[in-house]
């Protein structure tokens, strides 16, 4: 998959490019809005990463301009502003996402992947999820592990569902906080970890192979392997 990266800071551009290449994407990088427009006109991209503070153009205007000329690919917005203004929120509703600087590379990759998946998988909405011997019945809101019903609260089920939908992929704490709880802030304490810890206590009982794994400093991943 090919991604267009629009970022004027060369340091950031270089390590994000490296990270995307390392994750198996093809990357075209642009320093400013002008270059980005001409690149986007030449070929289509599966996704775009756009910094808001470009030298020649406001990032939002670039996105609106691209949208206007028919570019439909999802955008991950990078913002150095702390408070994300209304216009970004508006875009977010349209299926895009944003990250404030400084961000974790893992977070960027996770969100990019999330965006691309959301964009490509249109009708695929399963009623059951499987990870190893864990099975989630999304209609009955019931989880079983090797046939044994897990006694989960609705919130725990929602958390497990999110992890299982992203099985094999890293999800970060702020992704969990945003997508499961609908909140965007940086807690001062390990509130998300405690939820995962509790969930793990119910899902990964002693004697069973652990499904929920912690990636230190990054987040969590659910995988059967």
């Amino acid at each position: 998959m090919r991604i267009l990266l629009v970022e004027d800071d060369h340091e950031i551009q270089s390590f994000v490019t490296d990270a995307l290449l390392g994750a198996g994407y093809e990357v075209d990088a642009a320093d400013d809005g002008q270059t980005a427009s001409s690149l986007a006109a030449k070929r289509s991209y599966h996704g775009m990463i756009v910094d808001l503070g470009l030298p020649d153009l406001d990032g939002i205007d670039l996105i609106l301009q691209l949208r206007h000329s028919g570019v439909r690919s999802p955008v991950l917005i990078l913002s150095a502003r702390r408070s994300v203004d209304e216009r970004v929120r508006g875009l977010e509703l349209g299926g895009d996402d944003y990250l404030t600087k400084p961000f974790a590379v893992a977070e960027l990759l996770a969100r990019m992947r999330n965006l691309l998946r959301r964009h490509s998988s249109v009708a695929e909405d399963p009623t059951r999820l499987h990870v190893g011997d864990l099975e989630l019945d999304l209609l009955k809101r019931r989880a079983t592990r090797a046939g044994d019903v897990l006694n989960l609260s609705p919130q725990e089920f929602a958390l497990l569902e999110y992890l299982c939908r992203n099985a094999g992929k890293v999800v970060t704490r702020s992704m969990l906080l945003a997508d499961v709880w609908g909140m965007r802030f940086q807690p001062d304490t390990n509130v998300v970890d405690v939820h995962i810890y509790r969930l793990r206590g119910k899902v990964d009982l002693p004697g069973r192979s652990p499904l929920i794994k912690t990636l230190r400093g990054i987040g969590y991943v659910v995988t059967a392997a």
Binding site: E11, D18, K101, P102, A104
Partner: peptide, 19 residues
């Protein structure tokens, strides 16, 4: 915010990549 953030992002990114 901007002037501090960009270098912070760069430093953090490099550290993370090196990790």
């Amino acid at each position: 915010a901007h002037d501090l953030r960009s270098p912070l992002t760069a430093v953090r990114g490099k550290l993370e990549v090196s990790l």
